[in-house]
């Protein structure tokens, strides 16, 4: 199928871009890497009135280093994240997750900002943002704001981004050496959307899990922060008993979507397997 027609705008400045979004509101659709939007347009499922191509805003493709944060520009590609040594050093969870994002020819164009703005519940980056307590940076003519990832993802393909706003970057706290993390997902074929995935980040100081964050993908209408499992694990000493209790909590709190291919119980079970594997890995 061929994409339906639309009006095309390619702003050459951020100001132009924000003015365009301000003018057209819901009628406008931002085109970043296009790796999710273009298939929807080719299916004629997405029919933007105005397509705002932000490819002419190279400043959105840069990474900004602040004192204790890293802001990854929205147009940074999956591939750039996968191959960046500095990201590997500062936010290794992202480096571990990146190879799971689709395939090489998708990673070369698909962007982190696009993935965050789309909020596909099976995508890797939204769950990573939750696990890492990232903030989403948004800009509009009304001014900029930061939204914690916990508050950003509101439902299936639904976020706190307003129609006149642009996701400009993702702000991650830099991790210190005490911070442990793990990313894993289960899919039937390499690069497929995961049946379930899990991103975990925590401090392992002394004998206890501290500030643990467990985020899952593929098991709800949005990326899910596993608060039940997290509260079991927080301040708990790693042990098989802790793991089992956390898994019970996770199993009880997940509400996976009903899908003929993967019934809810199955996704829930895979999520529990992923948590078990993650905790075993952390416990060495």
């Amino acid at each position: 199928m061929k994409a339906p027609d639309f009006g095309y705008v390619r702003p050459s400045t951020l100001a132009e871009c924000l003015a365009t979004l301000n003018e057209y509101g819901d009628e406008a659709q931002v085109l970043a890497g296009g790796q999710s939007l273009m298939p929807l347009m080719n299916f004629r499922l997405a029919k933007p009135g105005i397509l705002v191509d932000i490819g002419g805003l190279p400043e959105l493709a840069t990474t900004r280093w602040e004192t204790d944060h890293v802001v990854i520009g929205a147009l940074t590609t999956h591939d750039t994240i996968a191959t960046s040594d500095t990201i590997r050093e500062q936010i290794p969870l992202l480096s571990d997750a990146a190879p799971h994002v689709a395939h090489v020819a998708i990673r070369s164009r698909g962007t982190i900002g696009g993935s965050i703005a789309l909020a596909d519940p099976a995508a890797e980056w939204p769950a990573c943002c939750l696990a890492l307590s990232a903030e989403i940076e948004l800009a509009s003519l009304r001014g900029g704001r930061r939204v914690p990832a916990d508050e950003f993802f509101l439902g299936l393909y639904s976020t706190d981004r307003q129609a006149d706003e642009l996701v400009t970057g993702i702000r991650f706290p830099m991790l210190d050496d005490r911070r442990a993390h793990t990313f894993d997902e289960v899919s039937r074929r390499r690069g497929d959307f995961a049946i379930a995935g899990l991103a975990l980040s925590c401090d392992l100081v002394g004998p206890k899990f501290k500030d643990i964050r467990v985020a899952l993908l593929g098991v709800g209408d949005r990326p899910v922060l596993a608060r039940g499992a997290m509260s079991v694990l927080e301040d708990a000493e790693p042990s098989d008993a802790t793991t089992e209790t956390a898994i019970e909590a996770l199993s009880a709190e997940l509400r996976p979507p009903d899908d003929p291919m993967y019934p809810p119980d199955y996704r829930r079970q895979v999520a529990c397997v992923l948590l078990r594997r993650a905790l075993n890995k952390l416990m060495g």
Binding site: Y8, L31, G34, Q35, D79, H103, A105
Partner: peptide, 21 residues
């Protein structure tokens, strides 16, 4: 993947990029 070409030296899906891009 049948439509894969190189754009600025990078493997790219030809169906997922507008020609004007």
């Amino acid at each position: 993947g049948a439509c894969t070409v190189l754009v600025d030296g990078r493997l790219t899906r030809g169906c997922l990029m507008l020609a004007v891009q």
